[in-house]
C-alpha cells in the first residue's frame, strides 16, 4: 500500500508566463511510489491552477514574500493545522529566500522541503554569475549589475551592443543602444527592484537543462531541452528533449562541484562553434518540468522522496526527441467559487 503525502505547492499561475506549479502537480499525481493530496498555495485569486479540475484538492491564499516572513510563517502554520502538511514545493524565485531561511521552522513543524542552501542560492544570482563562472570553470557572458541610470553611458567601455538587460528575478530584454537600456532599466527596476543586470549577448541557440541534485554532488536526473516555439515573453510554448551529452556532462559537473540540493534549470547558449555559455541558473524546477516526466524522469517525485529521506536511484536515461506543446483553454468558473476564495482565502 502506497503512502499518501499532503504536499503544498506554489506557482499555480499557468498563464503566458507560467509558473511550474501545475506541471509539478501533474508529475506528483503520476508518482509510482506515493499518492498525494495537493494543497495549492496561491498569491492571486485568478491563478488558473486554482480552478483546473484534478489539480488541487484544496487551495489557500498566502501573503506575498514582501509581507515579511512572520506573516508567511503564520499563514503556513494555519494551513498546516488544517491540512497536516508533509512537504512544500515552492516554485517561484522571489519566494525562495523566505522558504530557505524558514526551513528550520518548517522542519520543526514537521514540514519537509528540498531546497538549495542559502550559499548555493546566493552564489548563482545573476549579479554573481561572473564569479560563479570563474569559481566553477564555466563560461559565462560578461555581466554587470546596474544600480543607477548614470552607469548606462559607460557601458560602451565594457560591452558591445546589442546586450541583454535583465531583472534580478525575471524578465530579459535585448537593447541595441543606451536609450533602449534606459527604457528597459526603468521598466525592470519598477517591477523587480534593483539591481538591474546587463549581460553581453551571446549569439547562438538557447538550450536548457532541468536537473535535480541530491545535495551530495550527485545528479539524480537531468534532461536537456531546446525551445521550439517561443512566446513574446521568451517562454517556451513548445520544446523537444535533446541528446546532447556535452550539455549533460556540464550539468553533472556543476552539480558535482556545487553539491546542488534541489531542482534547477540551467539556461545555456550553444554557439555555432559548439561552445556553451551559461546565461542563468534558476534555483527551482522550471515550468517545462512535465516534459522531463514525459521523457521518463519524474523529477518532482524524486525530489519529494529525497526530501523525505527515502532512497532515490538516479535516473540514467530519458527519451530523446520527446516534445511538449502548450495550449491555452478557457475555464468556466462559478462566481461562488471565486467568491469563496476571495472572501475566505481558501477553497
Amino acid at each position: 500500500m502506497l503512502p499518501t503525502y499532503n504536499i503544498a505547492i506554489t506557482g499555480l499561475n499557468n498563464t503566458d508566463n507560467p509558473g511550474p506549479g501545475v506541471p509539478v502537480i501533474r508529475g506528483l499525481r503520476e508518482a509510482k511510489s506515493f499518492k498525494v493530496n495537493i494543497i495549492g498555495l496561491a498569491y492571486e485569486n485568478l491563478e488558473p491552477g486554482i480552478y483546473l479540475d484534478g489539480i488541487c484538492d484544496k487551495v489557500y491564499q498566502i501573503p506575498y514574500p514582501s509581507a515579511g516572513s512572520t506573516a508567511f510563517i503564520d499563514r503556513i502554520k494555519y494551513i498546516h493545522e488544517k491540512e497536516n502538511l508533509d512537504f512544500i514545493i515552492p516554485n517561484f524565485d522571489a519566494e525562495l529566500f523566505t522558504f530557505i531561511t524558514s526551513q528550520d521552522i518548517l522542519s520543526d513543524l514537521g514540514i519537509k522541503t528540498f531546497l538549495p542552501t542559502l550559499e548555493q542560492f546566493e552564489e548563482r544570482q545573476k549579479v554573481n554569475l561572473p564569479e560563479y563562472g570563474k569559481k566553477y570553470n564555466v563560461q559565462v557572458p560578461n555581466s554587470k549589475a546596474l544600480t543607477s541610470l548614470s552607469e548606462i553611458n559607460d557601458l560602451r567601455k565594457e560591452f558591445d551592443y546589442p546586450l541583454l538587460v535583465k531583472g534580478k528575478f525575471y524578465d530579459a530584454y535585448l537593447a541595441y543602444n543606451p536609450e533602449q537600456v534606459i527604457n528597459h532599466f526603468n521598466k525592470i527596476s519598477a517591477k523587480w527592484g534593483l539591481p538591474v543586470i546587463v549581460q553581453a549577448f551571446a549569439k547562438g541557440t538557447e538550450v536548457n537543462v532541468i536537473a535535480l541534485g541530491d545535495g551530495n554532488g550527485n545528479t539524480i536526473g537531468a534532461v536537456p531541452m531546446r525551445k521550439q516555439y517561443i512566446t513574446d515573453k521568451g517562454k517556451a510554448w513548445g520544446g523537444i528533449t535533446l541528446g546532447d551529452e556535452k550539455l549533460l556532462e556540464l550539468t553533472r559537473n556543476i552539480i558535482k562541484q556545487t553539491k546542488w540540493r534541489g531542482g534547477m534549470e540551467l539556461e545555456m547558449i550553444k554557439t555555432n562553434t559548439g561552445e556553451y555559455f551559461l546565461i542563468e541558473i534558476n534555483p527551482r524546477i522550471p515550468a517545462w518540468v512535465y516534459l522531463a516526466n514525459g521523457a521518463g524522469q519524474n523529477l518532482p517525485e524524486a525530489m519529494v522522496n529525497l526530501g523525505l529521506g527515502k532512497e532515490v536511484i538516479p535516473y540514467t536515461s530519458y527519451e530523446i526527441g520527446k516534445m511538449f506543446v502548450r495550449y491555452s483553454q478557457d475555464l468556466i468558473v462559478d462566481l461562488s467559487i471565486f467568491e469563496k476564495l476571495s472572501m475566505n482565502g481558501e477553497l
Binding site: T205, V207, M225, R226, Q228, I240, T241, L242, G243, D244, I320, G321
Partner: peptide, 16 residues
Amino acid sequence: NIAISQSGFAFDPNSG
C-alpha cells in the same frame, strides 16, 4: 546519431 524515418523525416538529437 541522425535519425531518418522511412517517410523522410530527419531528426538531429543534438540540436533538436
